[in-house]
């Protein structure tokens, strides 16, 4: 049997939901940055060390990289098919009134997130994994100080805020869309998942947005 676009969509849904799960863990880890300075430094660096040394986390991180890449690659494959299917454009087009903005702009939102990820990986992930960082009192790599000094720059905080907004709108459509692709059709549970998706999106987006703002303006 030939592979259908619906099978591509299943990959999008599965990888997307895994990334949704990862965001929860990532946010919970980041919340440690909000502790009082000395405590935050000690705990955040200990936590980072714990993650980088654990074999289970290593496996999950490879699943994560694979999910990110395949989510982007399959998005491109699917978009290419859609562009071919919708090749001739309307002279006068008002189709957008019938659907939410985020649902039509997942590609643009995803691209913003991808650009953000490149910056994010370069400044934190790469620095932590492949360079020699100064150690803190407990002998762990001092990622905390890197984060705090990075968030001192206002433009950097702004880049982050815009990216998190894009992430929010991406999640708002993506979470529910994944449930539809996986075949959820019972009206009661469709509604429940929509409400859950809204709450999830709100918590994740506001949570991630709050951290750089708090560090820059209050800490």
């Amino acid at each position: 049997m030939k592979t259908t676009t619906l099978q591509y969509k299943l990959i999008m849904a599965a990888t997307g939901l895994f990334l949704c799960f990862f965001l929860v863990i990532h946010l919970l880890g980041n919340l440690q940055l909000l502790l009082p300075a000395a405590r935050a430094q000690e705990q955040f660096n200990w936590y980072s060390h714990l993650l980088s040394g654990n074999i289970l986390i290593k496996i999950i991180s490879w699943v994560l990289y694979l999910s990110l890449i395949s989510h982007a690659v399959y998005a491109l494959l699917i978009t290419r098919k859609s562009k071919k299917a919708n090749a001739s454009s309307y002279y006068y087009d008002k189709r957008k009134v019938s659907s939410p903005w985020s649902s039509r702009n997942m590609g643009i939102l995803g691209t913003i997130i991808l650009i953000f990820l490149v910056i994010h990986f370069k400044d934190f992930w790469y620095v932590y994994m492949f360079t020699d960082l100064p150690l803190d009192a407990a002998g762990n790599k001092d990622l905390y100080t890197i984060v705090i000094t990075t968030y001192d720059q206002l433009w950097y905080v702004l880049v982050y805020e815009v990216s998190f907004l894009a992430l929010g709108f991406h999640l708002l459509h993506g979470f529910f869309s994944a449930s539809r692709t996986l075949g959820l059709y019972h009206p009661k549970y469709v509604k429940a998942v929509k409400v859950f998706g809204w709450m999830y999106t709100l918590l994740i987006t506001l949570g991630f947005m709050a951290i750089p703002l708090y560090i820059h303006f209050i800490k």
């Binding site: 049997m1 030939k2 259908t4 676009t5 619906l6 591509y8 969509k9 699917i78 098919k81 859609s82 071919k84 299917a85 919708n86 189709r95 019938s98 659907s99 939410p100 649902s103 039509r104 997942m106 459509h173 529910f176 869309s177 539809r180 692709t181």
Partner: peptide, 17 residues
């Protein structure tokens, strides 16, 4: 579903329009 693909229709991105 295979035939829908073969006829050159695009994927459903759940915009619900």
């Amino acid at each position: 579903v295979s035939q829908m693909d073969a006829m050159g229709f695009g994927n459903c991105s759940n915009t619900e329009a």
